[in-house]
Amino acid sequence: MSPSSAPPSSPLDVQTLYLDHHAWLVDWLRKRLRHRDNAADLAHDTFVKILGKPQRLSEVRQPRAWLSTVANGLLIDRVRRQRVERAYLEAISHIPEALVPPPETQLMLMETLARIDQLLDGLAPKVRAAFLLSRLEGLGHKEIAMRLGVSLRSVEKYMVSAIRHCYLAQR
């Protein structure tokens, strides 16, 4: 039996999965990241995520494929979060120091921004722009249509699409 497959008659448990595949996962991640410590951290995060969904283990037929899928999703989330953090830090670098929020507030804001970014991931650019103009700048549909250079009917469709996307992403 190869280490990448479990016998069909015995369900995986987290301990077996960890012992059999942790080193492989760290190596797999190390090839995608620059530092081994980052790979070890992300491998740890992968197993923590798996611990949160133990019912999925009984469905796993190819542990390494599943682990790499979970880890890749976490890697994408990490890159997205770093991009949001850089943009936030760049934005606050242009305001007077006295107005910069305290570190705890900054952390909360970055987490919220990362969650919003993740929630809106997958929306077409104009749909995302229409939604953000509506929610963040408080613009009405006519103003959004003018700003984006599209019809009012398009903006209405964009908003329905964005709201549906957000609803489904939270399920």
Rank of each mutant, 00 (worst) to 15 (best):
M1L: 06
S4F: 11
S5V: 15
S5I: 07
P7C: 03
P8L: 02
S9C: 14
L12N: 11
D13Q: 03
T16F: 01
L17F: 06
L17I: 01
L19E: 15
L19W: 15
L25E: 02
L29F: 03
L33A: 03
L33N: 05
R36W: 04
D37M: 14
D37H: 14
N38A: 07
A40I: 05
D41Y: 03
H44W: 06
G52Y: 05
G52C: 05
K53Q: 12
R61M: 11
Q62N: 11
R64P: 15
W66I: 04
W66K: 03
L67Q: 06
V70S: 11
A71H: 01
A71V: 02
L74N: 03
I76P: 14
V84G: 09
R86V: 12
R86F: 08
E90F: 11
I92N: 04
S93G: 14
P96M: 00
E97Q: 13
A98E: 09
P101S: 08
P103L: 04
E104N: 12
T105K: 10
Q106H: 13
L107H: 12
M108E: 14
L113W: 05
L113C: 02
A114H: 10
A114E: 14
R115P: 09
R115E: 15
R115G: 08
R115H: 14
I116K: 15
Q118A: 11
D121G: 07
A124C: 00
A130R: 05
F131M: 07
F131N: 09
L133S: 02
L136W: 13
L136C: 15
E137Y: 00
G138R: 01
L139Y: 04
L139C: 03
G140C: 04
E143K: 10
I144L: 11
R147H: 10
R147C: 07
M159C: 07
S161Y: 03
A162V: 04
R164S: 13
H165C: 07
Y167M: 11
Q170V: 15
